[in-house]
Design a protein around this nucleic acid. Sequence first.
DNA 1: CCTTGACAGATAATCGATTATTTGGATAGT
DNA 2: ACTATCCAAATAATCGATTATCTGTCAAGG
Lengths: 245, 245
Amino acid sequence: MVPHDDGASAPPAEDAPSSSGFLDDGKNTIGSQLASRLREAIISGELQAGSKINLDKARKTFNVSLSPLREGLARLISDGLVEFEDNRGYRVSSISLANLEEITVLREELEVFALRESMRIGDVEWEGNVMRALHRLNRTERDAARPETLERWEEFHREFHLTLISGCGKPILLHFCSLLLNLNDRYRRVFLTRTSGDRNVSQEHSEIAQGAVARDLDYACDMLRQHIHRTGTNLRNHLATKGTL
Amino acid sequence: MVPHDDGASAPPAEDAPSSSGFLDDGKNTIGSQLASRLREAIISGELQAGSKINLDKARKTFNVSLSPLREGLARLISDGLVEFEDNRGYRVSSISLANLEEITVLREELEVFALRESMRIGDVEWEGNVMRALHRLNRTERDAARPETLERWEEFHREFHLTLISGCGKPILLHFCSLLLNLNDRYRRVFLTRTSGDRNVSQEHSEIAQGAVARDLDYACDMLRQHIHRTGTNLRNHLATKGTL
DNA sequence: CCTTGACAGATAATCGATTATTTGGATAGT
DNA sequence: ACTATCCAAATAATCGATTATCTGTCAAGG
């Protein structure tokens, strides 16, 4: 058995190919790396919603050739972050009130359903993963002044929600939830750099997680639904205020 | 230089299911056309589930270059019909009992939810579309001896189910349902060339549609759920019998 | 002044060739 | 015999250049 160097994500050297590293995991091809970079650029708001993606400029910006660029963009289409039309190219998916509301509603339906299934059939390892994800999340500070803490918090937050439903044994459902989470996170990162004053998000997460491992189906599902709903409401308000739609 | 076309080149405008399409195309690029051809090949079972897709062979089979081939395959990944791994290429998604059951369960959840929403907010035009889709479907014969009737029936059947939920005003949800329908249709086309004897599928569709336009929420949803469930059960039985899984 | 059509620049799609990676099999060492 | 290592064929990824398509502009005709 190979020691699986887990731990914190090692900062990948900018351009260091395989030479000495024997543990080169996932992101091997340029296309894959691009997909990650583009995804981050879109979710973080660096690439504005609705804007056109000029292949030539993108090619120069990222110092890659067309083929891997298209490859990367193709994956973001699967993620719902990029749209495409024949002969007309790619553009960053638009945001809108209706879109946000749909995402929220679908998260309430799907994530809650997945949580229920997880509680129904999840095993002890799942419980452990949930508690770990909760702990890491609540131990991570979220300081709007330091962007790197935001990014880290976002990562752990996403991880927490996915872990929560990871016991459901339904890969397609997990895939759907993952997409919705992606879409939702973009709204939060663009419009919400801090938590609304009247919420204690850490406590909300704790309540959900503890209800989940205690297999208190109705309680946990209700907490999760409210959690999602509150976030949706907050986002809607900020979108209405700041957004120029 | 002109790409020489061997005999297989069919008139590309042939399969125009666009009910209202005065603008003929949409399938402009080679990549788009390939996506359609590959999708049909997979759903119909021509390309066996789980099999590897050799790019070189596929390139020759379809008389295209690598770029559009990858383009087309990328779209099928979005559809869940093809899987991909870095440096290891593409393969047709596997089928399994668990996969079938998940698809069925998710269809029951999502399609029924979408139907309810459609009945709640769908307009008169939606009602009309439903009735038209129902009529076309029930007027189309399904003769296992003539494959072209099967294809046509499948097309109308898919169209019916999508139309039924098209009034819900939720594009992402519709997208999810469309994917699930794709995945489900593959099972049916591989394992069920005719309807189970104890079912009257036309009547089932009629009941759903009429309940829908009558806005009888609970009735229509219940009928749809049963309809999906029965299909799932039938498929499971055939899969257990014929399939070597 | 408005419409129509043609031209040119911009942009996307595709190709053929090249480079990188994986995989299976042969070979050498224990 | 068994394992590890290295090679070569197969396969995927990437590149640079070419071809096809679109889009805006401008001039001619009504």
